[in-house]
């Protein structure tokens, strides 16, 4: 099911949560709404579900205007951050809830066959008789997904689905969700504030801030061509160096670099820790404040002669100690007008 948001607005008592968001979601797409808290991402998801009504604009499911369709008739599957399983029902009863309350009559045999299928899909065979308190968080979230899928939703909506789980479970479930999506091909929108999760999982990432779309594109597009300093900062660790641009050439701490297309004047130069190199010969003069060793490399915290603190990743065998003097070399960077 193709979904289209047309200039959707939502205002809560005093503050505006979503300012005119327009978005097209292709049929079968796995889309991430990514943003810091308060960016309106959950509100957008809830409006698509019908758990909130839009104050302005329209939401289309295919060609049908779904803006005013109540949630129970909208045919969405919704997965909540804290599972929202019915505590007094077993896993199997939770999964069959949607079928039981549906207007479509199903025989008990039909329902239990469907429950068994779904338990297999979410790999929880044999746990149907347990109560939600008797299974782990990761298992609960898989039950919640099975329950949402049981009613054959047109679109699957997940609100921070892995937010309450610990890191290892989260990684497993992410891979598993990707597989299920591949298997079922159902249009899926999920909300997260975790950029790694969004980039890992989604076909397309929509980055939001303060109720507006800042940038959208494939993970490759948003990573390689962040449209603003906000996106650059939000997607991962980054260093900010101040400099200036004159006729396409940026100068930072006495070093000049090519900066095509940037307007003249003060500029902010952004480079990720892996975009910088440590050098003994030439570059921006800096001194090492701290060396942080990690399983996959070594990170230096350094201060430039201009007094700016930067972090950079170096190969683990680099010989360097706190207090060493040297130079920073910028391998890749993004320049935005200050």
């Amino acid at each position: 099911m193709k979904i289209r948001l047309d200039n959707v607005v939502k205002t809560f008592d005093t503050f505006r949560a979503v300012h005119g968001v327009s978005l097209d979601i292709e049929s079968g797409e796995l889309l991430a709404l990514l943003g810091p808290s308060g960016s309106g991402k959950t509100t957008i998801l809830r409006m698509v579900a019908g758990l909130e009504f839009a104050d302005g604009g329209h939401i289309y499911f295919g060609d049908q205007d779904a803006t005013d369709i109540p949630v129970r008739d909208r045919g969405v599957g919704f997965v909540f951050q804290h599972y929202a399983l019915f505590p007094h029902m077993t896993v199997a009863e939770n999964i069959s809830f949607g079928m039981k309350v549906s207007k479509v009559r199903r025989s008990p045999a039909e329902m239990s066959a469907r429950v068994a299928d779904l338990l297999r899909l979410v790999r929880l065979e044999g746990l149907g008789e347990r109560f939600p308190t008797q299974i782990s968080g990761g298992q609960r979230q898989r039950v919640a997904l099975a329950r949402a899928l049981a009613v054959d939703p047109k679109v699957l909506l997940l609100d921070e689905p892995f937010g309450a789980l610990d890191a290892n479970v989260r990684r497993d479930l992410r891979r598993w969700l990707r597989e299920i999506h591949g298997e079922l091909g159902i249009t899926t929108i999920f909300v997260t504030h975790d950029q790694e999760e969004a980039l890992d999982l989604a076909d397309r990432v929509v980055i939001l801030n303060e109720g507006k779309i800042i940038q959208q594109g494939t993970p490759e597009e948003v990573c390689r061509n962040p449209s603003s300093a906000f996106v650059m900062k939000f997607l991962g660790d980054t260093n900010r160096l101040s400099g200036s641009v004159k006729s396409g050439v940026a100068s930072i701490g006495g070093v000049t670099l090519d900066a095509d297309g940037c307007p003249d004047g003060a500029a902010e130069v952004y480079a990720r820790p892996s975009d910088l190199e440590w050098s003994r010969e030439s570059g921006i003069p800096a001194s090492v404040l701290r060396v942080i060793d990690r399983p996959d490399g070594r990170r230096l915290v350094a201060r430039t002669a201009g007094g700016e603190t930067v972090e950079l990743d170096v190969p683990p065998e680099t010989v360097v100690r706190a207090g060493d003097e040297g130079f920073l070399r910028i391998v890749r960077m993004k320049v935005f007008a200050a």
Binding site: V71, R72, R74, A84, F97, G98, V101
Partner: peptide
Amino acid sequence: TLEEAAQTLGGSDRSIFLRG
């Protein structure tokens, strides 16, 4: 969210109250 979950699953107010 229990109630919201029941709503997204298509439950009527009556069945949400009685079952949920």
